[in-house]
Amino acid sequence: MTQPDAVSATALRDLAAEIFEVHPDDITEGAAFYEDLGIDSVQKVEFVVRIERQLGVRLTDEEAAGLQDFGDTLAVLRNRGISVGP
């Protein structure tokens, strides 16, 4: 797997919406996955794995556990040198 250097936030949001079974508009950067979106831990790990599969990155356990909302997700990817476009 080669790691792409850019990803679309819209595409990531659509991916999360599909897994979480919510409307993409509900996935704001600050909406907490558990408290606001009402997902469970397996849905969150599924989101992590799908990102890992698509982008060829591997998140550490600490990074995965630290994802509380969509904003965290974008920040972790940026930290890995992936540019997040619209």
Binding site: M1, Q43, V45, V49, E52, R58
Partner: peptide, 13 residues
Amino acid sequence: TLSPGLCSPMLGP
């Protein structure tokens, strides 16, 4: 077919 850790977490349970 995938690297370790990339199986769909939803499938297992």
